[in-house]
Amino acid sequence: MSNIQVKITLLDERLEDGELQEKTENLLQDIKETVEIESAGLLPVKNSEQGAKDIGGFLLGVLTAEVKVANVKSLFRFLSDRLLGKTIEMEVTANGKTLKVKASSAVELNAAIKAAQEFVGE
Rank of each mutant, 00 (worst) to 15 (best):
T64E: 09
I55C: 01
E38R: 13
Q50A: 14
G57D: 00
N47A: 14
I55E: 09
L43N: 07
G41A: 11
E49T: 11
E38D: 11
G57T: 05
L43D: 03
A52F: 13
T64C: 01
E66Y: 05
L42I: 05
K68H: 05
Q50K: 12
L60P: 03
K53I: 10
V62C: 06
G51C: 09
L59R: 09
G41L: 08
K68P: 01
L42H: 03
A52D: 15
S39W: 00
T64M: 00
L42V: 05
T64N: 10
K68L: 11
L60V: 09
G57Q: 07
A65N: 02
K68I: 02
P44C: 02
E66D: 02
L63E: 02
N47E: 14
L63Q: 03
E66G: 03
I55Y: 10
G61R: 06
L42E: 04
L63G: 04
K53V: 12
E66H: 07
P44T: 06
Q50W: 14
F58I: 02
N47P: 01
V67F: 06
V62A: 05
L43Q: 10
G56I: 03
L60D: 09
A52I: 10
P44V: 08
E49V: 04
G57C: 01
L42R: 13
S48T: 04
G61C: 10
K53F: 11
K46Q: 11
Q50T: 13
G56V: 04
G51H: 13
K53T: 11
K46V: 10
L43V: 15
V67N: 01
V67S: 01
L42A: 03
S48A: 15
A65K: 01
E66W: 02
P44H: 09
Q50I: 14
A40D: 08
E49K: 15
P44F: 02
L43K: 13
G41N: 06
F58C: 02
I55F: 08
K46W: 09
S39V: 07
G57V: 01
V45I: 12
S39Y: 00
G41M: 07
Q50S: 14
G41S: 00
K53Q: 13
L63P: 05
S48N: 13
K53S: 13
P44N: 08
D54A: 14
G41K: 09
G57A: 06
T64G: 13
A65V: 15
T64Q: 08
L59I: 14
N47Y: 13
G61I: 06
D54S: 15
L43P: 02
K53A: 14
V45H: 01
S48L: 10
S48R: 14
E49Y: 07
A65W: 02
N47I: 12
Q50E: 15
Q50F: 11
A65Q: 05
V67M: 07
L43T: 14
V45N: 08
A40G: 03
A52V: 13
A40E: 06
S48V: 04
S48Q: 12
G56L: 05
P44D: 09
G56T: 11
Q50G: 11
I55H: 00
G56M: 07
N47Q: 14
S39I: 09
N47T: 11
E66N: 09
V62S: 13
G61W: 07
N47M: 11
G41Y: 08
N47K: 15
G41V: 04
